[in-house]
Nucleic acid binder design. Structure first.
Lengths: 305, 305
DNA sequence: ACAATCCATCAAAAAATTCGATGCTATATA
DNA sequence: TATATAGCATCGAATTTTTTGATGGATTGT
């Protein structure tokens, strides 16, 4: 019938369906009934058992007149098989992510703007709902997507222009620019026109690296150039720079509102806006933890934005 | 790409070759190199991974420019997979039978003849080589194969005429019949002719049930009938029945030699012989323990027969 | 004896896998 | 900046595996 260690068949070519079939035949003591239960023909069951017979080098079942009797080896194989299938099922079924008991680290790349506006809310929610997760904030710098691709961050929050390759993203809200200045500034008396804006002396927030703010790009496309008196890498402390000076700063509108009470805020006359997104890579796209966290963050931000 | 819990594909349809493929891709960080190693094309590997992606609802690997990076879920799956494959391999590989440490029960069906001749040797060898195995001797009765088919015995030793269905057997040796009588018996003076044999008064061993000894069958076919003065169910004590009487007993030749010194033994004139076999069912045909035991018994008996 | 049950087997059909070739994207190089 | 290269995805064709439906052989129960 079969020789032990039959070289003609690779034991690894057995799949879990075939193992389940073996288990059912063993339990039901019948090829025919197992076939019915599994929605197959008796013939297919016979074929599958025959394959298993070659793989295990054992007859597995011997006919005893009208019924079949498993061999001792078959009993043992079936017992092992039950554990094997259970393990595999557990492996194939992703355990539902439970924030309350979850542990791990989650890295967010963003810049001063997002940290100032949204980080407190995120941290607060996370401590309450998923206290086991360590939050790691890295500076997005001028090139946010690179943080994701390099594996330094799991989620990027910021203005994404291109929906580049390998990058999933979801828009949060649209942001406009605002100008901040000393309340005593002459230009603070009425809404700012583009002409006036271009004649003022500016404090420019460069955001460190090679990033160029959208309003600068738009101005350049219009053929205009900003009179820059001071360049700073971050909006932090911008309030004290414009207070008591004639300098004007341009920052996202929502940010201007948290810079301090002592400054005058008015709409920026450059006709453009940016859209803030969350973004991540394919690596995390299906991760239960990541889905939960990015959804949480998306909800928090869009609800208060 | 893929939706979690994709209903279109049965997770159980994954086989162990595919899991090994996943493991290799994960280790080598390359579809192409895994394909080379497994003797497949990159295309086949891509197909297999795609199937796994649907089953697990996870991209498993994300392209990072020129190379690939596994997802966290993939790492975990691969780790589980290694255990799964190891367990399966152990299950598929029949553990070599080690007599010295083996335990269990082994049932032999046979009759007085085999017990008297061979059981001491079998017991002796088994105690020495496989002390953990319990030997269980059951009477074969008139219908030996039935003991096997009923599961009452693992091995039958005895004269098998038919190589019936579901029954494996291996011949041990050929046995002839001998006549035993009192040394003072008139017929003991010269070789026994068939004519003389038929005129003697016999003690017939019936072996209990419905069994008919071969020499009886042959005599009947020849149209002869035996003059039976006494019927006994077993050859045990036959010596004392023929000693000091005019009765003649017919038993297998080897058995006659262990009945006692005080009797005369001569060849039985009925022209026939029987062949002693070991026999077993398909249930035990591939069992390592059974193969070892029946080979041991076969060797013991043929070496001293 | 006779019908019924049940697994084995065979040829044909259906499904899954593999191959070879090509496409597409992201580096690396000139 | 353009080009070459490496590497996975995808497509149709070829191959292999699985399933089916029909049939055979053996055993049991009536």
């Amino acid at each position: 019938m079969t020789t032990p260690n039959d070289p003609g068949i690779d034991p690894l070519s057995i799949d879990f369906r075939t193992l389940r079939l073996l288990e059912r035949v063993h339990s039901l003591r019948s090829f025919t009934r197992a076939a019915d239960e599994l929605g197959l023909t008796q013939s297919a069951v016979s074929y599958a058992i025959d394959k298993l017979r070659h793989v295990f080098g054992d007859p597995l079942f011997a006919r005893q007149g009208r019924s079949i009797h498993p061999t001792a080896r078959c009993d043992k194989i079936v017992e092992d098989t039950r554990h094997l299938i259970a393990s595999y099922r557990q492996m194939a079924h992703p355990p539902a992510f439970d924030p309350a008991t979850a542990s791990g680290t989650f890295s967010i790349a963003c810049n001063y703007y997002e940290r100032a506006l949204w980080l407190p809310g995120i941290v607060h929610a996370l401590r309450a709902r998923a206290p086991g997760i360590t939050l790691n904030i890295v500076d997005a710098g001028g090139t946010g997507p690179q943080r994701l691709l390099d594996g330094e961050a799991d989620l990027l929050i910021g203005p994404i222009d291109r929906d580049g390759p390998l990058l999933h993203s979801r828009p949060l809200y649209e942001e406009t620019y605002a100008c901040v200045m000393d309340p005593a500034h002459p230009a603070a008396r009425e809404p700012l026109s583009l002409a006036t804006y271009l004649h003022l002396d500016h404090v420019l927030v460069t955001y460190g690296g090679r990033w160029t703010s959208r309003y600068i790009t738009v101005l350049a496309e219009m053929g205009h150039d900003l009179r820059v008196a001071l360049r700073v890498p971050s909006p932090a402390g911008l309030e004290s720079l414009v207070a008591g000076s004639d300098l004007v700063g341009t920052v996202p509108h929502r940010l201007s509102r948290v810079l301090g009470q002592s400054i005058h805020i008015t709409a920026c006359p450059v006709p453009t806006s940016i859209t803030i997104h969350t973004a991540w890579t394919a690596l995390n796209h299906r991760s239960a933890q990541h889905i939960w966290l990015r959804t949480l963050i998306h909800t928090l931000i869009t609800q208060s934005a």
